[in-house]
């Protein structure tokens, strides 16, 4: 056996040792094992992502970031590396970067297996991050609007007062006009605040099975759009038919519905509250 093959075999054994330690929550021992494996074979991305997972458990986020970046260098398609890098960046409050990594992980994860628990977990983290961002931003927006509204009202009243002292008579009409103006101002500000008020998500952006906003919409030959993961579960557990039209349907006939996906994205960008998970 060549020395390189020997090293590879040894490293694999160390990985198994690490996995065993990890499963017993002995993260220090697991990190040691993976570190040795990396020293022997630094080009295997799994050794890096496994070690990153241990660091994640210990909340050592800088190290998570380092290991994940290394793993991504070795394998651009590593779902776990992009996912944990995203989490690490969110921890550092590098919001936009973190979200981008999570979205990347989500796309890669869906390509590999749209029904996997990883995909669901990544979505939850992504939705939570987006919701928190919305909460933060909308509070700021609402506060700014409130302040601006107060200022505008005061200025308008001041102007109305000045106007009325110049003119004489027609008191009733002037008062009515003034009240109308104030009411109109109120409406303008209400309109401006509308997008940030949680309401109903339109039905056409929701799957008929999950009743929730689409994440990965696919369209069937009948023209109905469903959430991909849940439709695959339906094939497995119920039968190979379109749940609404009951026409025969084979998984290979599903086509991503990109238009709905775009519409969902546009809606969520405008109404971040819809990221809230029950």
């Amino acid at each position: 056996m060549s020395p390189a093959m020997e090293a590879a075999e040894q490293a694999e054994q160390l990985k198994l040792d690490g996995n065993m330690a990890f499963s017993k929550s002995r993260f220090g021992a697991a990190i040691d094992a993976y570190t040795e494996a990396i020293a022997l074979c630094p080009n295997v991305p799994i050794y890096w992502t496994n070690r990153a997972l241990c660091y994640r458990k210990r909340n050592e986020w800088t190290k998570v970031e380092e290991d994940c970046r290394k793993a991504i260098q070795l394998d651009h398609h590593s779902v776990k590396a992009h996912y944990m890098l995203g989490l690490a960046l969110l921890q550092k409050e590098e919001f936009a970067e973190g979200v981008r990594e999570l979205e990347k992980a989500l796309d890669l994860g869906r390509d590999a297996n749209p029904k996997s628990y990883m995909v669901e977990e990544i979505w939850q983290e992504l939705a939570r991050a987006k919701y928190l961002e919305w909460e933060h931003e909308s509070t700021k927006r609402s506060w700014e609007l409130q302040k601006l509204k107060g200022t505008c009202e005061a200025a308008l009243k001041e102007k109305q007062f000045l106007d009325s002292s110049e003119k004489e008579g027609f008191v009733d009409e002037t008062m009515k006009a003034n009240a109308d103006q104030l009411e109109a101002l109120d409406r303008v500000f209400q309109k401006a605040a509308e997008d940030d008020i949680p309401t109903e998500i339109p039905d056409y952006l929701c799957c008929k099975i999950t009743l929730d906003i689409f994440r990965d919409p696919v369209i069937t030959p009948s023209g109905v759009t469903y959430e991909r993961a849940v439709l695959l579960e339906h094939f497995q557990k119920v039968g190979k038919f379109d749940p609404i039209t009951r026409e025969y349907l084979h998984p290979s006939q599903l086509v991503p519905n990109l238009a709905i996906k775009e519409a969902v994205r546009a809606f969520l960008d405008k109404h971040g509250w819809a990221y809230k998970i029950d």
Binding site: T210, L211, D212, I277, D278
Partner: peptide, 13 residues
Amino acid sequence: MDLSRVHKELREC
């Protein structure tokens, strides 16, 4: 079971 769906169903109904 999809609890979130059941919640939504009750609310809608």
